[in-house]
Design a protein around this nucleic acid. Structure first.
Length: 273
DNA sequence: CTATAAACCTGCTGGC
DNA sequence: TGCCAGCAGGTTTATA
């Protein structure tokens, strides 16, 4: 579920809560969430650590620990990081962190696709080695994007989902950005003019910023750390609006499958030519 | 390089 | 009401 806006929103919240807090207990409810590390090693290396800076790279949330290691959390499809109210239990708790202020932070993940990895600094950079530019940073220019699309004949939608082209976009925001740029999702990536790439670059940034502003898109399970849903669903133009009238021209929104994912677009505003 | 399918998992919705 | 098919915010790996 979570794409860049949902991860960034939660990162900002954790930045207000976690730095300086000591992790006093760790419980592993689903070992595979650790991505191969033995639960005993994870618990040993995390327990007693003091949280440092909170970061984000693409859809990965980074929690620095004072010993030099870092927790890298990827929520994948259904994961949430939530402060669990006292005396409440979460049926989907995969990892539970007890803090020195008495609170409990839970990695809650019904579908179990999410990952909470403990990595050294070296492992961290290896993990991110093949990731593309951050779309909200200055490095993400139209020239940079065009360079990464050059020579690619696959559908632009598929290219936008590829985290080595640009990080942070998922199925919702890729569709929304293409609508905002008025580009059909099946257009071959390298067929976009420089003008169109420039529009797309701007559209990506605006779409993501809007998502962050609204606390992310919730149509299913996305919640922030206080268990609140985001409101960005109300502002979407095409995603999950099949058959409904385009907010710009009134034509019904259509669906096509690209890279095994539902893609939503307006046939009038986003011409195939 | 590109495309496609399957795998990893559980839960919700809609149709009959 | 009950059951089943289909679908869901992501990523990796295998196969053609």
């Amino acid at each position: 579920m979570p794409e860049l806006p949902e991860v960034e929103y939660v990162a900002r919240q954790l930045r207000e809560e976690l730095p300086g807090r000591r992790i006093v207990s760790v419980t592993v409810g689903w070992p595979r969430t650790l991505g191969g590390m033995e639960p005993s090693e994870f618990v040993t290396r995390v327990t007693g650590q003091v949280v440092g800076a909170i970061g984000r790279r693409g859809k990965h949330l980074i929690v620095e620990l004072d010993g030099g290691d870092a927790l890298v959390i990827h929520r994948r499809m259904s994961g949430n990081l939530i402060f669990l109210p006292p005396e409440e239990r979460d049926p989907w708790a995969r990892i539970v962190f007890g803090l020195d202020d008495g609170r409990t932070l839970v990695f809650s993940d019904p579908r179990k696709f999410g990952r909470t990895l403990l990595v050294s600094q070296v492992e961290l950079s290896d993990l991110f080695a093949s990731l593309g530019p951050e779309p909200l940073e200055d490095e993400f220019t139209a020239e940079e994007l065009q360079a990464r699309l050059r020579g690619s004949r696959r559908a632009i939608k598929a290219a936008l989902l590829d985290q080595s082209v640009v990080v942070g976009l998922g199925n919702i925001y890729a569709d929304e950005a293409l609508f905002r740029a008025r580009i059909h999702p099946l257009r071959p990536a390298a067929s976009l003019s420089h003008e169109e790439v420039a529009q797309l670059r701007d559209a990506i940034r605006e779409t993501l910023l809007m998502g962050i502003e609204h606390g992310g898109t919730t149509f299913g399970r996305h919640r922030d750390v206080y268990d609140e849903a985001g409101t960005n669903l109300d502002y979407l133009n095409v995603y999950r609006r099949i058959g409904q009238p385009c907010r710009v021209c009134g034509q019904p929104i259509e669906r096509v499958v690209i890279a095994q994912r539902s893609s939503h677009y307006c046939p009038h505003c986003q011409p195939r030519v």
